[in-house]
């Protein structure tokens, strides 16, 4: 049985704590965080700067292991404290998608290639990868810019390509860190609605760190982080 295809939550984190430094320089960035997100759910993480939102997000993204606590993604235990329980890079490749404040597109690849590369990294044959990348760009409304380099795309278009790249391998979990911070309110809302569409149509769970309170209606649930702790918003 594939655990990712069952009704198990997309992600479940238990007692997640992250401490930077030690002794006098010790900083507790995140303390005893518990969170459970179902598939197809879109949630927002709110909170002031330094509250620990990005720490939680990067921990869930398996790029910044917690000091203690446990992360289970799609029913698969992935991290027990800082200890990886499997090959994290391979797991990210198959099950996670990322979107950031900056699109972080690879500058020497055009829009379709930026999506294609995510598929090829996951062993999709090049021709099939290109076809799927074009479909995704079409789904996100930027197919007409497929052959443009990132420099030639607007901020909104770049972010749509970044979302397409995050969706490429049909991840069970998409993590977005302030994805609309560099966009105007109209385009910011478009991106947020896009996440909702993706979550509801494709079944991926989407966790978005945001400061943008104008689009909160898009989310199924919101959480507030403060001083490293998480509470329902």
């Amino acid at each position: 049985m594939n655990p990712l295809s069952t009704d198990t939550p997309a992600i479940e984190v238990s007692d997640l704590t992250k401490i930077y430094g030690s002794g006098n320089t010790e900083v507790v960035a995140m303390k005893d965080v518990n969170l459970r997100v179902a598939k197809g759910e879109v949630i927002a993480l709110l909170g002031p700067s330094g509250a620990g939102k990005s720490t939680l997000l990067t921990a869930m993204g398996l790029i910044n292991p917690p000091t203690s606590g446990r992360i289970v993604i799609g029913g698969v235990p992935v991290l027990d404290g800082p200890q990886p329980l499997l090959d994290l890079r391979a797991f990210r490749r198959h099950h996670l998608g990322f979107v950031f404040q900056k699109a972080n597109l690879i500058p020497f690849l055009n829009a379709v290639q930026n999506v294609q590369v995510a598929l090829e990294i996951n062993d999709t044959p090049p021709r099939q990868a290109r076809k799927r990348a074009l479909e995704l760009l079409d789904y996100l409304g930027v197919a007409d810019r497929a052959n443009n380099l990132p420099d030639a795309l607007s901020g909104g278009q770049q972010q749509r390509v970044a979302v397409a790249r995050a969706l490429a391998n049909q991840p069970s979990l998409i993590l977005a860190d302030e994805p609309t911070a560099a966009l105007d309110s109209h385009r910011g809302r478009q991106v947020m609605e896009l996440f909702r569409k993706v979550a509801h149509q494709r079944g991926s769970a989407v966790i978005v760190v945001t400061h943008d309170h104008r689009s909160l209606d898009v989310f199924d649930r919101t959480y507030e982080m403060e001083d490293g702790g998480l509470r329902s918003g």
Partner: peptide, 8 residues
């Protein structure tokens, strides 16, 4: 970014 996406 490639590493984040899981590139070998």
């Amino acid at each position: 970014m490639l590493k984040l996406m899981g590139a070998r």
